[in-house]
Design a protein around this nucleic acid. Structure first.
Lengths: 116, 116
DNA sequence: ATTCAATTTCGATAATTCTAGAAATATAGT
DNA sequence: ACTATATTTCTAGAATTATCGAAATTGAAT
C-alpha cells in the first residue's frame, strides 16, 4: 500500500530537482521549521538575502512542484510547506532505498515506535 | 542524534539535484532494485536505452554525488547504490519534514513497527 | 600484437536554469 | 485618487546542464 498515493518517477524527479537548489532547499527548510504558520515571501527574503525577483522565481518553482502552497494575506503572500507532498516524496525515496517499508513520517509507524 | 551523520544543506541539495533528473533517478532505482549485486553500466544501458556517452555522463554525476559507487570487474564497471548515503539523505529530509524523527529505514524503528 | 568489448573522455551544440534590474500588479491605508 | 508596501512578471544575459557522435582508454581473449 503506497504511503499517500503512488508517485511516478517523473513526478518524484521533478520535486527532487526543485529541492536540489540550495536557495530553494533553504527556503523550504525555513517553511518546514515555521510549521503551519508558514512565512511570507518577505520573511523568507530576510533570511535568504537574495533579490525579490530571484526569490519569487524560486518560490514559484516550489509552488509549481506542489511542495509549497501560497495564500494571500492582505498584501503579503503567506507560504506553507506542503507536508503531505513531502511525506509522499520521502515515502517514494524510502521505497527506493528500503524496498517498500513505510517511513516514520507515517503516524502509524511513529505510534508503534513511540510505544516503547 | 542524527541518523548516520549530520548532512549540511549544500550536500543534501547536491544529492537531491542529482536524483532530480529522470534518467539518473531511473538508473538509481534500478541499482537499488538490484541490491548488493548492482549492475554494470551496460546492463543499465539496456534498460535506459540512451547512448553510452550520455549514460556515462549521468552515472559519473551519481558517483560524484556519492550516491553510487563503482568497481571494475574485468572490462565491465559494476555500479552499486550507496545505501548508506541514501539513508542519510532520507534522514535529512525526514528531519526537515517530520521535526527530527528517524525514518523507518532505521533498523530499530523497523523492528518496533514489525513487532505487531 | 591484434582484435573485440565495455566504458570514458572529448568536443561541440542545444536546451535549460539562474540571476537580477525594471516595470507591472495587487492590496491597504490616507 | 494617491502613496506605500509586497510580490510578481518581463526581459535578457550569464552560467550550467544535457545530449551524443567520434576518438581514446582499459582489459580480456586469441
Amino acid at each position: 500500500m503506497p504511503y499517500i498515493k503512488a508517485m511516478d518517477t517523473d513526478a518524484a524527479a521533478k520535486q527532487l530537482a526543485e529541492l536540489g537548489n540550495p536557495h530553494r532547499l533553504e527556503a523550504f527548510r525555513l517553511l518546514v521549521k515555521a510549521g503551519e504558520d508558514g512565512l511570507t515571501v518577505g520573511e523568507i527574503q530576510e533570511h535568504l538575502k537574495i533579490p525579490g525577483s530571484t526569490l519569487s522565481h524560486h518560490i514559484s518553482h516550489l509552488v509549481w512542484a506542489d511542495l509549497v502552497v501560497q495564500e494571500r494575506q492582505g498584501r503579503a503572500l503567506r507560504c506553507r510547506a506542503n507536508f503531505a507532498a513531502m511525506h509522499a516524496l520521502i515515502g517514494f525515496l524510502a521505497d527506493e532505498c528500503c524496498a517498500g517499508v513505510t517511513t516514520s513520517c507515517d503516524p502509524a509507524v511513529r505510534a508503534k515506535a513511540a510505544s516503547n
